Computed example of a mutant assay.
Amino acid sequence: MSLPQPVPPSWKDLGKSANDLLGKDYPFHGATLEVKTQTPSNVAFKVTGNRDSKTDAISGDIEAKWVDRKHGLTFTEAWTTSNVLRTTVEVENQIAKGVKLDLNTTLAPEKGTKTALFNAVFKQSGLHTRAALDVFRGPTFTADAVVGRDGFLFGAEAAYNVTEGNITRYATAVGYNAPEYAVTLQALNNLNTYTASYYHRVSRDTEAGAKALYDTKATHGGVVLEVGTKTYLDDSAFVKAKINNSGVLALGYSQQLRAGVRASFGLALDTQKLNDASPHGPAHKVGVNFVFDS
């Protein structure tokens, strides 16, 4: 008798281990401050501010999230410095086990623009499927599914324009997930863009990964390749490094200063332009991120 299959990752999480390794914890685009607090009544507040090092523009938002675990309900409201209101309502495991429904809306009063995206998720042993309806754009109906068996993953996605009556986007993917490594191959953008990613937990303290991208419609041609690694110095600190085939080297360092306080620093160097006079010029970037979580 075969063992029950685990729930596979969703379509958007295929290759997540490699994407997080190569994309997160490199705050070299500016300075970011994030403050999180939690009330006894299950209301979580998060305030985020960001200063872009290239444009010197300052942006931010304040978010409040209320969770009713007994009834599987989550309500999130956010307000940005661009005067955009974001609202999310989520209901999970109430209609049926493994079913999650959520509605995401945005409203920009000054511009008079609005969006509404309705999502439905169903997951069970060996299956993870999602459906989304973009009410004001199209409307467009998007569906994806990932099936898993003994570590092997197969997924597909398609978007259908209800008004025009045609498929506007489709993609497919295959992968393999093991406890210590993962491989993912994806054909995206109507099978015009191909990506391959690899993640390996080399040891308890070291991770490594790589990602390659080939766009059949890109004018420059060739494959974009990026490789990176992450090493834990101790339980509270780690360093990251990555480099791509354009010669851009990125370094990241994250340190937990105390319980609930973490500082991260990022540096990006264009190794082909190391002689640039200004460290903040187009060839090099530095940044910092502070997170306070109570």
Rank of each mutant, 00 (worst) to 15 (best):
P109D: 06
K70Q: 15
Y26H: 07
L233M: 12
P40F: 06
V162G: 02
L101C: 06
A31Q: 12
E180N: 13
Y26T: 03
A96I: 09
T193Y: 00
K36T: 13
K111H: 12
D52M: 02
N119I: 09
T32G: 11
V47N: 11
A268V: 06
Q256I: 12
L21I: 04
G151P: 04
P6L: 03
L117G: 03
L133C: 04
G209Q: 02
G138I: 01
I58K: 14
N177Q: 15
S59Y: 03
A159P: 10
G15A: 09
I95G: 15
D234G: 08
G281L: 01
A116G: 11
I167D: 00
D61M: 09
G287S: 07
L251S: 01
L14Q: 07
F141M: 06
A57L: 13
K111D: 14
G155W: 01
Y194E: 07
T142D: 05
A158T: 08
V227H: 01
E90C: 11
F122Y: 15
A187W: 10
Q272K: 15
S236P: 00
G30S: 00
Y181K: 05
R201C: 01
T81Y: 03
F118K: 10
T206C: 07
G112R: 11
S53R: 14
S2R: 15
S41A: 15
D134R: 11
G148P: 09
N42S: 15
G148E: 05
R258F: 09
L117F: 05
V174R: 07
L188V: 10
G287L: 05
S53E: 12
K16E: 12
T216D: 11
P4E: 09
I243P: 05
K97F: 00
Y170F: 12
E164A: 15
G165M: 02
Q186F: 04
G222A: 06
L251H: 02
N50D: 13
G72Y: 05
L225M: 12
D215I: 05
T76P: 03
A143W: 06
R204Q: 14
I243T: 01
P9C: 08
F136A: 09
V147Q: 08
F290K: 02
